[in-house]
C-alpha cells in the first residue's frame, strides 16, 4: 500500500503501531485558540486542545454546542475566524479539505450520503483512489475489499448505496474514510440512530481501528458508548470547552452534568 504522506512523522497507519517516544511527545493534532463566528454567533470560541498519536478523544455536548463545526474546521470545510490548527506540527489553516485528506485526516459525515451512482465497493474505492497515491484500479479495488472486510460490509460490496440500512450506511462512511489510509479519523455521530447491538459493534470497530494505529476523534451523544471507547473526553458548551479529562472524571463533573448530562443521569450513575 502506498503512503500518501510526505511529512517527517508520517507512518503507515495500517498494521503498524507507532511507538517511538518522539511521536508520543508532539501532538498529532493541535487546535490553538480557534474561534469560528457565523455572523454574530460564535459557534466555536477560543477552543484549544491537542490530540496525541494513538489516542481516542471523545467530544460531547448539547446540540448546537459547536461539535460538528469543530469537525468541519479540522477537516477543512470551514475556515476558522481566528486561531490556528496544527497537524503533525504544520499549520494547516490554509489547506483545502482534499489536501488535508491526503495528509491523513479523514472524516465521516453526520448525515450519511453514499454516492448512490456507485456500488458499495466503488464508493470505498473513491477513498482509496484519492486518499492514497498511485493506486490503479486493481489496487484500489483490493484496498476497498480489505476495508469492507474490516467493517463487515464485504458481503454487500456490489449493493447500491440506496439499498443499505442506517447502520450499514454508517459503516460505509467509516469504510470510505478508512480507505484513504488516515492517521486521524474524525467520526461525527456514527452511532446515532443505531440499535444497542449495533452500537456495541460500532464501539468494537472503533477500538479495532484505533489498535491499527489510527488516532480517533469521536463526536457522540450516546454517553456510555463514548465513555467506553474514549481515552479522554472533551465537553463543549456554547462553543467553549468546559471540561477535558478522563471519562470518569468528566462524567461526574458538576459543570458537565449541569450543562449536558442532566441531574437524572447523575443520580442514575450514583445509583450504579
Amino acid at each position: 500500500m502506498s503512503d500518501a504522506l510526505s511529512q517527517p512523522m508520517a507512518s503507515n497507519s495500517f498494521g503498524t503501531n507507532p511507538s517511538s517516544a518522539e511521536q508520543h511527545n508532539a501532538p498529532l493534532l493541535q487546535l490553538v485558540d480557534i474561534t469560528k463566528r457565523f455572523g454574530g454567533l460564535s459557534a466555536v470560541k477560543d477552543l484549544s486542545f491537542s490530540l496525541q498519536q494513538g489516542e481516542i478523544l471523545g467530544v460531547i455536548g448539547p446540540n448546537g454546542a459547536g461539535k460538528s463545526t469543530m469537525v468541519n474546521l479540522i477537516g477543512g470545510s470551514l475556515a476558522p475566524t481566528s486561531g490556528t490548527i496544527f497537524y503533525q506540527g504544520h499549520d494547516i489553516n490554509r489547506l483545502p479539505p482534499h489536501r488535508r485528506a491526503r495528509l491523513g485526516i479523514a472524516r465521516t459525515f453526520q448525515l450519511t450520503q453514499p454516492f448512490i451512482g456507485l456500488d458499495i465497493r466503488e464508493n470505498v474505492m473513491v477513498g482509496a483512489f484519492f486518499g492514497q497515491r498511485g493506486l490503479n484500479r486493481t489496487g484500489a479495488s483490493r484496498v476497498a475489499d480489505e476495508v469492507l472486510e474490516r467493517v463487515n460490509l464485504a458481503h454487500k460490496a456490489t449493493f447500491k448505496g440506496s439499498q443499505l440500512t442506517i447502520a450499514d450506511r454508517k459503516r460505509l462512511e467509516i469504510a470510505r474514510a478508512l480507505a484513504t489510509n488516515p492517521q486521524l479519523l474524525l467520526l461525527d455521530e456514527v452511532m446515532a440512530g443505531l440499535t444497542s447491538t449495533e452500537v456495541a459493534q460500532a464501539v468494537e470497530l472503533i477500538q479495532q481501528i484505533n489498535k491499527m494505529g489510527v488516532t480517533v476523534l469521536i463526536i457522540e451523544h450516546i454517553v456510555h458508548a463514548i465513555a467506553t471507547v474514549s481515552n479522554r473526553i472533551l465537553v463543549l458548551h456554547h462553543g467553549q470547552k468546559i471540561a477535558e479529562d478522563e471519562p470518569s472524571q468528566v462524567l461526574s463533573d458538576p459543570k458537565v452534568i449541569g450543562a449536558y448530562l442532566g441531574e437524572r443521569y447523575a443520580k442514575e450513575r450514583r445509583a450504579e
Binding site: S77, H98, F115, G117, V126
Partner: peptide, 25 residues
C-alpha cells in the same frame, strides 16, 4: 470505470464528501 469518472460521480452525489475523501473537486 476510472478514477477520474468516480471522482466526477462522487462530486455529483456529494461534493463535500468527495472533497473530504481527497478529491480536488
Amino acid at each position: 470505470r476510472s478514477r477520474f469518472g468516480y471522482a466526477l460521480i462522487a462530486i455529483r452525489e456529494n461534493e463535500q464528501a468527495a472533497e473530504a475523501l481527497g478529491v480536488p473537486t
